[in-house]
Each structure stands twice: as structure tokens, then as C-alpha cells.
Nucleic acid binder design. Structure first.
Length: 316
DNA sequence: CATGCGTGGAG
DNA sequence: TCTCCAAGCAT
């Protein structure tokens, strides 16, 4: 949306902002095009099946966003449209302090203060705030609010985020070409690159588990994971030992270990042993899916790794 | 306020 | 290889 264009379609603003939560523009781009092509209006998305939306979201991560996306779309479609105030937006599933302000500012050009990671960094440097995040969050928000203009607040919000993304970057900020260099306290004190300070992070523990690729003729056993928790609502091979669930393996005469896949989650590293076997009876959970119907793109990243390991071992 | 929640890219 | 992290939200 070019600057000065005025109102933007709230549906598209909302969809892009949700996709961009903790996710890079590069990663979002194709997903956004795909979603808006499949579902041009929020009513179209509201009418979609859960599994279809989860499949289209697969690979983008943070799957609670997809579940909240659908819940939000259905609520908005029911009530006839998006709220046009930050408070109204804030009450919807998946829309928090950042996204509500972003939609109000960008789609409705309201003078709401948008504070994302970029703005936190820009403001921390402008005012040389040395308190570490996340404790500094409230102070940074209050300082940011003093900057929000009455004119073109939507363009201003986007400009602040762009400044943080391209010039006031986390490492080696390009202060030499920054339009705010004359106002920047951190720059004046030579500590721009050290801000914002952050509380140290806990090390990521290792976890191990097993995934079963259970074959039955020309079909494999897949399951929809429980809606809450890790990879909630996504399509997956049955597995256990790594996510707090302890479930028995599907019944097979014998299992052959194909190898291990590694995966990094936000708060732990995972080694998952991949076992291949032939089902002896009817599976107690999940559903048999014909091989040619299995869409790699509909699987979350971890399960794509399992699939890629098993695929060559499975007869066409 | 701390924790849980994905993934891929940059340095 | 490893660390950091990207336009956060829910609980």
C-alpha cells in the first residue's frame, strides 16, 4: 500500500499483519498471495473448512494464528464487518495490542500508536532507554505515544517500522543515513548498537521422540493434531515422546528405523526417530490417506522432514 | 510477568 | 555450527 493512498482494505491489512507476526516479509509473501487468491473477501475465508486453512498455513509456523484467523473471520463475517476502532479490534481472537493498533492506523488512518519490535528498537535508541526488554515495554510504549502524529498516522506507523527494518537495524545500524540522527540520544552517546538491551535467554533443551510412518497398502496413517499445543491443528504423522503426549505406536508387526530428523522449535531442539512399518490391523487413531493424496505442502515443517525421509522408502 | 508457540535467513 | 531473531498473542 503506497504512502498517502489513504484507506486500505481492512481484510487485507488484518491478514497481512497476522501473517507478519514474528515472521519475515519474505516468508509471508507467497502465503499472502495464495490466501487472498483463494479467499478474496473475509466472508470467503469464514466459509472455508478448518483443515483447508490449516493446510494452506502449513509451513508458516505459529499455528495458533491460523486457528485464531478463522475464528476471527467467522466472527467478523457474522457481525457484518471489521470494527473500526482499536478497542473493537482488540477484542477479536488473534488481535493483540500491536495488530489492533496497526489495523486502526493503517486501514482506518486513526492516530493509534503502533509498537512492534522495530518501533521498540527505534524508540529505545532515540531516548537511550537502557532498561532491558521485556521490562522496558511499557516505558517504550509511553515514549512512542508521544511521537504519534495526528496527520497520516498510518503512513507514520509504517515509516517507523520500515526505519527499524532497514536503517535502525538490530546490528550495525546505518546511522549515517538515518533521518533521525540529529534527535537520537543513543547515537550521541555512541551506544545505538547496544540498544535495546535484552534479558538473557534460557538455553534450549534437547528433546527426543519417535514418529511412525505407518503403511497400509498404498496409504499412510496421518492424524490431525489436537487443536491446542505444539503444531496444534496441523496434519502429522503419529508420534510421541517429545510434546508431552504419550501415546502408543500404531500396531505393526515390526518397525524399521529410517533415521533421525532434527528440528528447532522456539523453546527446545528436537531429534525425532523416524520408524517405518506396515499396519497389522485397523488404526486406533488418525486416518489412512492414499499416497498420491498426501500433499507435502500441507504438512508443517517438522513433518515435511519426516515425509522427505520416508518417501524414498515407500513404493510408489 | 513468564512461558509456550515455528520457521527460515542473516551474520 | 550457532545465535539471534521477525511487522506478537494467549494464558
Amino acid at each position: 500500500m503506497p504512502p498517502g493512498t489513504g484507506r486500505a482494505d481492512p481484510y487485507r491489512v488484518w491478514l497481512s499483519e497476522v501473517m507478519l507476526q514474528q515472521t519475515t516479509v519474505a516468508a509471508v509473501k507467497d502465503y499472502f498471495i495464495r490466501f487472498t487468491t483463494l479467499w478474496p473477501r473475509i466472508e470467503d475465508l469464514a466459509a472455508a473448512e478448518d483443515a483447508r486453512v490449516m493446510a494452506e498455513w502449513a509451513g508458516l509456523g505459529y499455528y495458533a494464528r491460523a486457528r485464531n484467523l478463522l475464528a476471527c473471520a467467522r466472527k467478523v463475517a457474522e457481525t457484518g464487518g471489521f470494527p473500526d476502532t482499536r478497542t473493537g479490534l482488540r477484542a477479536l481472537p488473534g488481535i493483540g495490542p500491536y495488530t489492533s493498533a496497526a489495523i486502526a492506523a493503517i486501514a482506518h488512518d486513526q492516530p493509534e500508536t503502533v509498537v512492534d519490535g522495530n518501533v521498540e528498537r527505534v524508540v529505545a535508541r532515540l531516548f537511550a532507554v537502557e532498561t532491558a526488554l521485556p521490562a522496558a515495554k511499557a516505558e517504550l510504549t509511553a515514549l512512542a505515544e508521544t511521537l504519534t502524529p495526528r496527520k497520516r498516522p498510518g503512513d507514520y506507523a509504517q515509516a517507523m517500522m520500515d526505519l527499524g527494518a532497514t536503517i535502525c537495524t538490530p546490528r550495525s545500524p546505518a546511522c549515517g543515513i538515518c533521518p533521525l540522527i540529529a534527535d537520537c540520544d543513543a547515537r550521541a552517546r555512541g551506544i545505538a548498537a547496544d540498544l535495546p538491551r535484552k534479558a538473557p535467554k534460557a538455553p534450549r533443551p534437547e528433546r527426543r521422540g519417535i514418529a511412525w510412518v505407518a503403511r497400509h497398502g498404498q496409504s499412510l496413517l496421518l492424524e490431525q493434531r489436537p487443536a491446542k499445543g505444539l503444531l496444534g491443528g496441523t496434519l502429522a504423522f503419529p508420534s510421541t515422546g517429545w510434546d508431552g503426549r504419550e501415546l502408543p505406536p500404531p500396531g505393526a508387526a515390526q518397525w524399521r528405523e529410517l533415521g533421525e530428523v532434527r528440528h528447532v522449535f522456539t523453546h527446545f531442539n528436537l531429534s525425532l526417530r523416524v520408524m517405518l512399518g506396515d499396519l497389522t490391523g485397523n488404526p486406533e487413531r488418525g486416518a489412512l490417506v492414499p499416497l498420491r493424496q498426501i500433499d507435502r505442502d500441507a504438512l508443517p515443517g517438522l513433518m515435511r522432514k519426516v515425509w522427505d525421509m520416508a518417501r524414498p522408502e515407500i513404493a510408489a
